[in-house]
């Protein structure tokens, strides 16, 4: 297939566009502290979030009549009842604000990233590690505050573990606790990044097959462009899947954070 010869080149371009670049499209250098493309879209997402929240809070009513307010309330209630209260047995209300911020931050970023031409700020490790590090700091703070310094450190070893193996278990548990930063960050990043790569590849395939027809209209080029319909259909299906993934990943990240907070909040 002649058209597929261009694919590797186009995929390289796609991967480059999905990597961290300066907002003006130039190569990012760690030594320079400039606005990156992902941070730009994070700012866009947060501006949208601020507007949504402003509208929602302004229209809060006993009998809601604003769709924005209704949607935000439903999602906040979902975070409060299904995530926070479900995972944190006692005093989950205290952690609702943190978990709700996390959920809405990730969800808005993911949704903004689905708009063609935009990027999800959660599609870069810089942002996801920032979120997971914050979660790590938060649940450890909760653990130290609720159980006391020594109490929380001791809680890493489950009850009933023989004293001889307790230090080893403790080290493993502390290490696995630190690993949560990485697992949380990578899960979110990989899902968003991979989703966009797949969407990008289908978009490239759609345009590669249709390109000859646009350049030179003939019976042969029209027949050659037919696979584009299939690629477009696949892309549309995946796009819908990505909308679901945007919600699911925000949910999973917040849910796991709630699990970690719940575990740290009480001695076990």
């Amino acid at each position: 297939m002649e058209v597929l010869k261009k694919l590797p080149e186009e995929v390289d371009l796609l991967l480059r566009s999905l990597s961290t670049l300066n907002v003006n499209g130039q190569e990012y250098k760690p030594t320079e502290f400039v606005l990156s493309n992902y941070i730009f879209f994070m700012c866009v997402a947060l501006t949208v979030l601020a507007i949504i929240m402003y509208v929602a809070v302004k229209n809060l009513k006993m009998v809601p009549d604003s769709k924005v307010s209704n949607a935000v309330e439903s999602l906040a209630q979902f975070v409060r009842d299904d995530i926070a209260a479900g995972m944190i047995p006692h005093g989950s209300k205290k952690y609702f604000g943190f978990l709700a911020t996390l959920f809405f931050f990730i969800l808005t970023s993911n949704i903004i990233g689905l708009i063609p031409g935009c990027k999800p700020s959660t599609g870069t490790m810089g942002v996801t590690v920032a979120l997971s590090t914050t979660v790590f700091a938060y649940f450890n703070y909760v653990g130290f505050k609720n159980q006391g310094f020594l109490g929380y450190l001791k809680s890493f070893v489950p009850h009933g573990v023989p004293l001889a193996v307790a230090p080893v278990i403790w080290v493993i548990e502390v290490f696995s606790s630190f690993l949560r930063i990485f697992t949380l960050a990578v899960r979110l990043f990989a899902n968003m990044y991979a989703g966009h790569i797949i969407l990008g590849i289908f978009a490239i395939l759609t345009s590669l097959f249709i390109e000859p027809m646009i350049e030179h209209l003939s019976a042969g080029s029209v027949v050659g462009a037919l696979p584009s319909i299939g690629w477009l259909a696949l892309m549309t299906a995946l796009y819908l899947l990505e909308v679901l993934v945007a919600f699911v990943q925000a949910y999973v990240f917040t849910l796991l954070s709630a699990v970690y907070i719940g575990a740290a909040a009480e001695a076990h």
Binding site: Y28, E32, M125, V127, A130, L131
Partner: peptide, 19 residues
């Protein structure tokens, strides 16, 4: 791609705290 960039990490942390 798996290494967090400082130009993203720090603004993201600050943004999250502000939000």
């Amino acid at each position: 791609a798996l290494i967090p960039k400082m130009a993203e990490f720090i603004p993201a942390v600050l943004a999250f705290f502000i939000v």
